[in-house]
Design a protein around this nucleic acid. Structure first.
Lengths: 203, 203
DNA sequence: CCTACCGATCGGTAGG
DNA sequence: CCTACCGATCGGTAGG
C-alpha cells in the first residue's frame, strides 16, 4: 500500500466524521481540505468528482459498520443470541458510536431519498444489503426454534429497524437519554420476552 | 390581509414543497425566487435572513401538520378511536402526503440534529410539542379504559413514532410499498389487538 | 500533491 | 418589490 492509498484513507477518515455532522452534501471539499491541512485540489484529485467522494465515504462507512456491528455479532451462536448481539452493537454504534454525528446512513437516507443519482442509488443499495443481512439473522433464529416457525421475518426486521431509527432520533435530536433503553424494551417486546431490567441486562 | 401577507404565503407554500425535497439547507433563496418568478432580494426581504426563512417554513409545516393530522382526529371520540385516527392521518400525511419530499420534520430532524442554532432549537421544540400531544391522546385512551391502566405511555409514544419513521424510510428511500401496512401492523401489535387484514381495515 | 485560476452561486446589502 | 452589486465559497480545471 503506497503513500497515495494512505493519504486517501486519512481523507476518508476525516470525511466520515465531518459527513456524519454536516451530511454528505454539507461536506465540502474545501472544509475537508482545510481540516486536513491540504489544498482543495489535493483532496479533489483523489476522487475526481464530489459524488465520487460521497460514494467513497459511504463505502468506508459500510466497512466500519460491518466491522463494528456484524463482525462481533458473528461470534455469537446463530439464533437469538446473535440476533440480540446484532441489535445491541447496531444501536450502540449508530446512536452513540465513534462518529460524532451519529449514523451516516440514517442521515444519508433522509438527505438523498428525493435526490436521484449515483449517491442515492448507493445509499439505497447499502441499506438493502444491511436489511438482507438482518433478515438472514432473523431466519436463523427461526431455524433454531428460538423464534416461532410462523414468525413474519420481514415484519420483525421492519420493527427492529424502527426501534433503531427512533432511538437515533430521540437521542440525537431530543437528547432523550432513555431512548436507547426504550429501543431495547421495544426489542424485548418484539421477541416476546419479559422486558429485562437495565441492571440485570448489564450484568 | 394585505398584498405583502399574500405574497409571503405564496412564498412559503412553494418553500415548503422545495424544502421537503432538498432539505431546509438545500433550499436556497435563489432557487425559491426563480421558482416563483421573483427576484432574490424580493424573496429575501420577506424574511431578513435565511434562518428566519427556515423557521417560517417550519412554522408553516407545523400548521399544515396540525390541520391534516390532529384536527380531523379530534373529531373521533377520545380514546382508542382517536389514537388510531391520529396514527392513520399522521402516517398518511407524513409518508405520502401533499409534500413531494415527505415529512419535512423527519428530514429536518436528521439535517439539524448536529447543527446548533435557532433552526435546530425550533425543530426540536416542534417535535416536542407533537410528542406531548401524542402522549396526551395515549393517556386519554388509558383513561377510557381501552388501554390497560399500567400502560407505559411514554414507551407506547416512542414505539408509535418508531413505526412512522420506519415507514417513511422504507417507502421514500426503498420504495417498499408494504411499508405503510407494516407500520399499521406494528401499531396493532402495540395496541395488543389481532392484526386486521388490509381489506377489512379499508371497509 | 501544489499554486493559480475558472464560472456559478451562495447569503446578504444599497438604494430606490 | 426591483436592479445592481458585494465578498465568500462552491465544484472543478490547467499545468506543473
Amino acid at each position: 500500500m503506497g503513500k497515495g492509498d494512505d493519504t486517501r484513507q486519512q481523507i476518508l477518515d476525516r470525511a466520515l466524521a465531518l459527513a456524519s455532522e454536516c451530511g454528505l452534501e454539507g461536506l465540502t471539499i474545501g472544509m475537508l481540505a482545510s481540516a486536513l491541512g491540504m489544498s482543495k485540489s489535493g483532496v479533489f484529485a483523489h476522487f475526481g468528482a464530489k459524488d465520487e467522494l460521497q460514494i467513497a465515504v459511504l463505502d468506508a462507512a459500510a466497512e466500519r459498520f460491518t466491522a463494528n456491528v456484524m463482525r462481533p455479532a458473528l461470534q455469537q451462536a446463530r439464533g437469538l443470541a446473535r440476533l440480540r448481539a446484532i441489535f445491541d452493537h447496531w444501536i450502540a454504534y449508530s446512536v452513540s458510536g465513534p462518529l460524532p454525528g451519529g449514523c451516516l446512513f440514517i442521515a444519508a437516507a433522509a438527505e438523498f431519498d428525493d435526490k436521484p443519482g449515483a449517491v442515492h442509488d448507493h445509499v439505497r443499495a447499502a441499506q438493502q444489503r444491511w436489511r438482507d443481512a438482518l433478515l438472514k439473522a432473523i431466519r436463523l433464529a427461526v431455524d433454531t426454534g428460538e423464534l416461532p416457525a410462523d414468525t413474519d421475518c420481514e415484519q420483525l426486521g421492519f420493527e427492529m429497524f424502527a426501534q433503531v431509527l427512533a432511538a437515533h432520533h430521540d437521542l440525537r435530536l431530543m437528547s432523550q437519554h432513555s431512548a436507547v433503553s426504550r429501543a431495547r424494551r421495544g426489542l424485548d417486546r418484539l421477541l416476546a420476552l419479559p422486558p429485562l431490567l437495565e441492571p440485570a441486562r448489564a450484568g
